[in-house]
């Protein structure tokens, strides 16, 4: 589910902006750190869960406004260089601000420990994350499918020229899309913090998987990203159960094979 959430955010950015966003993982990490900091400061996990991703979205807004905005016309190579540089800056800043040593942040009291589902034990907090991620994905889908602005954004993925010809401020739309992508990365990070704790390397760890999810789902195909996130999660779990050593290879192998057979991704339209 988390993979789906990460993939969804990245898919928004890559699909609408057509940019390989290598800073997506760093935004994820910032979300996690912000959550822990705010939660400790306020003493309230739920409030922090609300605030932290908004902080990341603001950061995304600033980044888009100051930098990414100038890159839409540039080649992928410069976009790559820029977002990679950004990722370096963000993750080194995390070390400068919060220190190089990782730490743990526990789930709120009522979500601690495991739950016996009959066939297996499963942590309560993870169940909560599943539900929360599911709701978020549903909300994003509602926004894109049922609201006017969502429709415009979907149209933007299909055909940017047409949208701008219709007199819609496409630059504004790009900004919103990037901020939304950042928000989704931030909330994925915030939800992950109690599961995986905090450490400066958590961003890059997640980035590779997010890229796989996007490529599998098809660029700009949001439902595809969701489905691909679930598939990757299940594939990894299955492989880990039977052949643990290969659990990291498998996601890339799956991706390579699928892209060779179906270059547009599983559900890609382009």
């Amino acid at each position: 589910m988390l993979y789906a959430l990460m993939g969804l955010g990245l898919s928004l950015v890559t699909g609408i902006l057509n940019i390989p966003n290598f800073a997506h993982g760093a935004l994820f990490a910032v979300g996690a750190y912000l959550l822990a900091t705010v939660a400790v400061a306020l003493g309230n996990f739920w409030l922090a869960l609300l605030i932290a991703p908004l902080g990341v979205a603001l950061l995304g807004l600033a980044i888009e406004y100051a930098g990414i905005r100038r890159l839409y016309a540039a080649g992928h190579d410069y976009q790559l260089l820029f977002t990679f540089g950004l990722a370096l800056i963000l993750s080194e800043s995390i070390i400068l601000i919060w220190g190089p040593i990782g730490s743990s942040y526990l789930p709120p009291e009522i979500l601690r420990g495991g739950m016996d589902l009959g066939f297996t034990m499963y942590p309560k907090y993870r169940l909560f994350v599943m539900v929360a991620a599911g709701l978020l994905i549903f909300a994003t889908w509602l926004f894109l499918e049922k609201t006017r602005y969502g429709a415009i954004m979907r149209a933007g993925i299909e055909n940017k020229e047409m949208v701008s010809l219709l007199g819609i401020d496409i630059r504004m739309m790009f900004t919103v899309a990037f901020a939304m992508g950042a928000y989704l990365a931030g909330i994925a990070g915030a939800l992950t913090a109690p599961i995986r704790g905090l450490n400066p390397g958590m961003g890059p760890d997640m980035l590779g998987i997010a890229f796989v999810v996007v490529a599998l789902g098809g660029l700009g195909n949001l439902l595809g990203a969701i489905a691909a996130g679930l598939i990757i999660g299940v594939a990894q779990a299955l492989v880990a159960a039977y052949w643990t050593e290969a659990s990291t290879v498998v996601i890339y192998a799956v991706m390579a094979v699928i892209l060779l057979v179906r270059p547009q991704g599983l559900f890609g339209i382009r």
Binding site: H76, F211, A215, A246, V249, Y252, A253, A256
Partner: peptide, 23 residues
């Protein structure tokens, strides 16, 4: 392939070689 797909595919194959060497 072209565009972002090209980048991702070369990246994925790179990872495949990497993990092969790793294992």
């Amino acid at each position: 392939r072209s565009g972002l797909y090209f980048i991702m595919l070369t990246f994925a194959l790179n990872q495949l070689f990497y993990f092969t060497a790793y294992q």
